[in-house]
């Protein structure tokens, strides 16, 4: 039998810090590891580069229970994998030439992509109320009512009440409401870049109120607050800031296809902030 190929690190995010991390949660193509409040994710290449992602090829069938990360190397399951600095993924998008004039058209494209590609029960119902017809039973209807209420309050500038209604609510390991809030934080960065308006206090307040002491969610929100983005979302943010409409469409589709519900929920928050966030950061 030929020996198994040695794993290679294809990309390592700029938010992956040194230390010993232990397994938190495991999926088919990825595993989350935790150290205090910090999270890193080992993942198969198709998951894509991200600020805290370590992309490994071939991805192991059974991820190890712990990782030791040191400068230039990752030790796991008795093996040491070295990686050159050049494989560091830079997660901060560049908004070098923001274009305000075409923003509405690019946002219309983004909205269209969300409505076309978002899964049936995602928060895209905030962009088209007809999607609420798909919600069933008292729990889902109450959920939708709270989310609707939270989004309205937040976008009206009622940050504390809006965040309280949204955070932690919904399905999935990072609940839909938290995904939406991450989109809002990223949307505020974009507003700042495009409209030249300082939104940092607003972001800080949202982030401060949205943290719940849940390592996964807090980590996820912190990355959004600091504008550290996975590759597909970084591409989308750059296209919205100053790209063409076709680039926005392609990148939005690429992002929305990258996962089940979270990308659509985040994109909904991002869109809502750019389109209707005037009173949120005025």
């Amino acid at each position: 039998m030929p020996p198994a190929p040695l794993p290679t690190i294809v990309s390592i995010g700029d938010r992956v810090g040194p230390g010993i991390y232990t397994l938190h949660s495991r999926f088919r193509r990825a595993a989350n590891y935790i150290r205090a409040s910090r999270i890193v994710t080992t993942a198969a290449v198709e998951v894509g580069a991200g600020p805290a992602n370590i992309l490994i090829e071939p991805y192991p069938d059974k991820p190890p229970l712990s990782l030791r990360i040191s400068p230039g190397r990752v030790e796991a399951g008795g093996k040491t994998i070295r990686f050159p600095t050049a494989r560091r993924y830079s997660s901060r998008p560049e908004f070098s030439r923001p274009d305000r004039a075409g923003l509405d058209r690019r946002l219309a494209v983004l909205r269209g992509e969300i409505l076309e590609l978002a899964p049936p029960l995602s928060l895209a119902f905030l962009l088209d109320r007809r999607r609420e017809i798909g919600l069933r039973g008292g729990f889902q209807k109450l959920f939708a009512a709270r989310i609707n209420n939270g989004a309205e309050l937040l976008l009206a500038g009622e940050i504390d009440k809006g965040v309280a209604a949204l955070r932690g609510r919904g399905f999935g390991l990072t609940p839909s409401g938290d995904d939406f809030l991450a989109g809002v934080l990223i949307g505020l960065h974009l507003r700042q870049a495009i409209r030249r308006r300082d939104c940092s206090r607003c972001r800080d307040r949202i982030f401060g109120r949205a943290r719940r002491g849940s390592p996964m969610t807090d980590h996820f929100l912190a990355l959004a607050h600091d504008l550290r983005l996975p590759a597909r979302l970084k591409d989308l943010a750059e296209a919205i800031a100053g790209g063409t409409e076709s680039a926005t469409a392609e990148r939005a589709a690429d992002w929305l296809r990258s996962g089940a519900g979270s990308p659509a929920d985040l994109a909904t928050g991002l869109y809502a902030t750019l389109k209707e966030g005037e009173r949120l950061c005025s």
Partner: peptide, 28 residues
């Protein structure tokens, strides 16, 4: 599980005759 899996599973349960409401969520 991802959010859509949980929502679709909830919906599946709601299709059952005699089931008034159902939810499958993380315990936040």
């Amino acid at each position: 599980y991802d959010s859509v899996t949980l929502m679709l599973a909830s919906r599946d349960l709601l299709e059952t005759e005699g089931v008034d409401d159902a939810a499958i969520v993380m315990g936040t």
